[in-house]
Design a protein around this nucleic acid. Structure first.
Length: 169
DNA sequence: AGCCAGTCTCGGA
DNA sequence: TCCGAGACTGGCT
């Protein structure tokens, strides 16, 4: 666990996301939570300059993705807490262009384990940085929506915004 | 369309 | 270390 974990809000037209920053980058991003969330940390801990910079980048990137586009840049993603397998999966997912989708099986093949599609699904669900790591662009083999940890409606909304038509569940 | 078995990883007991 | 469960797949009924 990181010591100086800082949570900063990112207001968007879709609600207020929360970005978490460690000393080395961005380890997590939260979807807007229902109700109001308290986040006193920002006022207590002095925010390092580098974090403010990351936050600006993150905000831009997030909004770009929410608009169905490609972020100009990303902050350093700190997913060192994930297992080696998960990191491979996330890295592959990060290369999916807006408007494109891959199946769990294709991801599995991409990391050299064509039969690990189900495990890939698990890694997607464990993705701590949704949206920026486009886990929503991963569909089941027959283009079914599958599932989404942040809520199915998000997955639908994000994909539709990118012009992707998904099959019914 | 629905059910079943194969496959792989993760997390808890 | 073993066991169950999962955002999967492909095949069979």
């Amino acid at each position: 666990m990181k010591t100086n974990l800082i949570g900063l809000p990112i207001p968007t037209r879709d609600g207020e996301f929360t970005a978490h920053y460690s000393e080395t980058g961005l380890p997590g991003l939260d979807f807007p939570k229902p109700g109001r969330n308290s986040r006193p940390k920002a006022g207590v801990i002095p925010i390092p300059k580098i974090v403010r910079e990351w936050h600006r980048t993150t905000t831009q990137a997030l909004k770009a993705v929410l608009a169905g586009g490609l972020p100009k840049g990303l902050p350093p993603l700190d997913w060192t807490e994930g297992t080696a397998f998960q990191q491979k999966v996330w890295k592959v997912m990060g290369k999916i262009a807006p408007g494109k989708t891959l199946s769990y099986g294709e991801i599995a093949s991409a990391i050299g384990k064509p039969k690990a599609s189900r495990a890939v699904g698990g890694a997607c669900g464990a993705n701590p940085i949704p949206v920026l790591v486009p886990c929503h662009r991963v569909l089941a083999a027959n283009k079914k929506i599958g599932g989404f940890s942040g809520g199915m409606d998000w997955k639908y909304r994000l994909l539709e915004r990118e012009g992707v038509r998904v099959g019914a569940v």
